[in-house]
Design a protein around this nucleic acid. Structure first.
Ligand SMILES: Nc1ccn([C@H]2C[C@H](O)[C@@H](COP(=O)(O)OP(=O)(O)OP(=O)(O)O)O2)c(=O)n1
Ligand SMILES: [Mg+2]
Ligand SMILES: [Mg+2]
Length: 469
DNA sequence: CGATGGTGCGCC
DNA sequence: AAAGGGCGCACCATCG
């Protein structure tokens, strides 16, 4: 027997902002009573709940999203979680010892520079040392706690006045990698399978994205050499290979489709790389000479500008003046005229309906859109601009997951899906199935849903995740 | 002692 | 952080 009504998915689709969609909470919220502990009565309440929610799903036009995407996806996710990923604990064990030494040395240097020991993991203590004891300039106060801000960008701005801030940044970066990944991940290896089994949460993100927890495998480092080493610890079984398939410039392509902007559509029809072009424009580096870091920063700028980055924010990130930043933003939207119109239309839609939808009809309420609090309202406008694009990209990947998995099953392949990261799927394939697996993945992902622009997927293969990307 | 809030930061 | 969006986790500080 299959599943007919999934109240958790119903609830999430109807109220994506709700904090919980656990049966107990949904019964309380929607039926106004406590879920009985007696199983027979609990079953009655559950049936009553599904009878309430199913027609609402239909009224809100969420039926196809539920039947064709979310419900079949739940089964796919269960499989992906059960398969798990292999981790090479030796790579991380070596790094742990290495980081121990490095962190100890950094700690000593920092105490010397600070004129005494303190808790390096305490931003509160660090702030007092920097701005009171050492009397460094600035000292912006945080809103909620009144503490001094000690985040990396603040420390960076202090770096020319004192050696300490750089050391702190170095310490923080190393400590973060060690505590969150190097030491934490091996503890999650399941004794029975010898693999890592994350949870992919289907009812958490307000835009329709999936999230991953315990452990989170959607934020495995990639940034610098150490990050790459950590990523290389996610490995394929002997005789198998990892295949990574990541949509190229996905939300930009979604934007091109939804806005209908001719120039953006033409760019993708010509197979151009907008991130790389932005890198060239901002840093003056031609495509051939760009590092991953260049493209990554350019990507952040592209999405930042689209989703409401201010001239202040852009100037802070690029080091240019606020005036120049504003000129860049203006030029950006002047170039893509219909993009500006389209984003404005989303804000209008939110004002009118109190909510926005993705291409597939997924809903997100924007409750603060008419707020009198300027900050809250501005934030709501940015949410209204972001959600249809981020959410449509999520819908596309979810649909692709369902299709790819169906195809792998239908063709009785041994290739298995092991990870999903927003616009990327990772598979583990037996070496002799590799070519076929690649074909299937590319075909199903690129053909998932025909759009005004082609969808492109970058596919890589390797014995570990770093190599495959 | 555990829960909660805040800060900071890893990724997309 | 006043002003890209979306997450989860580690750690400190504080509260009850
Ligand atoms: N700083 C960032 C990075 C990513 N994203 C969103 C938009 C991207 O489309 C999506 C997927 O992230 P990718 O890193 O895969 O970015 P792209 O798909 O745009 O580029 P690429 O061609 O490198 O895959 O996540 C974002 O909003 N802000
Ligand atoms: Mg991508
Ligand atoms: Mg990606």
């Amino acid at each position: 027997m299959g599943v007919a009504h999934d109240t958790m998915l119903y609830s999430y689709l109807l109220e994506p902002l709700a904090g919980s969609h656990a049966l107990e909470d949904v019964v309380l919220r929607r039926l106004g009573r406590k879920l009985p502990s007696a199983l027979g009565e609990a079953a009655e309440r559950t049936r009553e709940l599904s009878a309430l929610l199913a027609p609402e799903i239909a009224r809100e036009d969420l039926q196809r999203l539920y039947e064709e995407i979310e419900l079949p996806l739940a089964a796919v996710l269960a499989e992906v979680e059960a398969v798990g990923v292999r981790l090479d604990p030796q790579i991380l064990a070596r790094m742990s010892a290495e980081f121990d030494k490095e962190l100890a040395a950094l700690t000593g240097e920092i105490y010397d520079l600070a004129g005494g020991p303190f808790d390096l993991d305490s931003p509160k203590q660090l702030g007092e040392i920097l701005f009171e004891k050492l009397k460094l300039p600035g000292g912006r106060r945080l809103k909620k706690s009144g503490q001094y801000s000690t985040e990396a960008s603040v420390l960076e701005s202090l770096a020319e006045r004192h050696e300490l801030p750089r050391k702190i940044i170095e310490y923080r970066t190393r400590a973060k990698l060690k505590s969150t990944y190097i030491d934490a991940l091996p503890r999650y290896i399941h004794p029975a399978t010898g693999r890592l089994h994350t949870s992919f949460n289907q009812t958490v993100a307000r835009t329709g994205r999936l999230s991953s927890s315990n452990p989170n495998l959607q934020n495995i480092p990639i940034g610098d050499e150490f990050g790459l080493r950590i990523r290389s610890a996610v490995v394929a079984e002997k005789g198998w290979l990892l295949v990574s398939a990541d949509y190229s410039q996905i939300e930009l392509r979604v934007l091109a489709h939804m806005s209908g902007d001719a120039l953006l559509i033409e760019a993708f029809t010509r197979n151009e790389d907008i991130h790389s072009r932005t890198a060239q424009e901002i840093f003056g580096v031609p495509a051939g000479l760009q590092t991953h870091e260049h493209r990554r920063m350019a990507k952040a700028i592209n999405y930042g500008v689209i989703y409401g980055l201010s001239s202040f924010g852009l100037a802070g990130r690029t080091g240019t003046s606020k005036t120049e930043a504003q000129e860049y933003i203006d030029a950006y939207f002047a170039r893509y005229g219909k993009v500006k119109e389209f984003l404005g239309g989303l804000v209008e839609e939110a004002r009118r309906n109190g909510r926005v939808r993705t291409l597939f009809g997924r809903l997100r309420p924007i409750p603060e859109i008419n707020s009198k609090d300027v900050a809250a309202r501005n934030r709501a406008e940015r949410e209204a601009m972001n959600t249809p694009l981020q959410g449509t990209a999520a819908d596309l990947l979810k649909l692709a997951m369902v299709k790819v998995q169906a195809r792998l099953h239908r063709e009785e392949m041994h290739t298995r899906m092991i990870l999903t990261v927003h616009d990327e799927l990772v598979f583990e394939a037996p070496k002799d199935e590799l070519a076929r697996a690649r074909e299937i993945v590319r075909a199903e992902m690129e053909g998932v849903y025909p759009m005004k622009v082609p969808l492109r997927v970058d596919i890589g293969v390797g014995s570990n995740w770093k190599e495959a990307k």
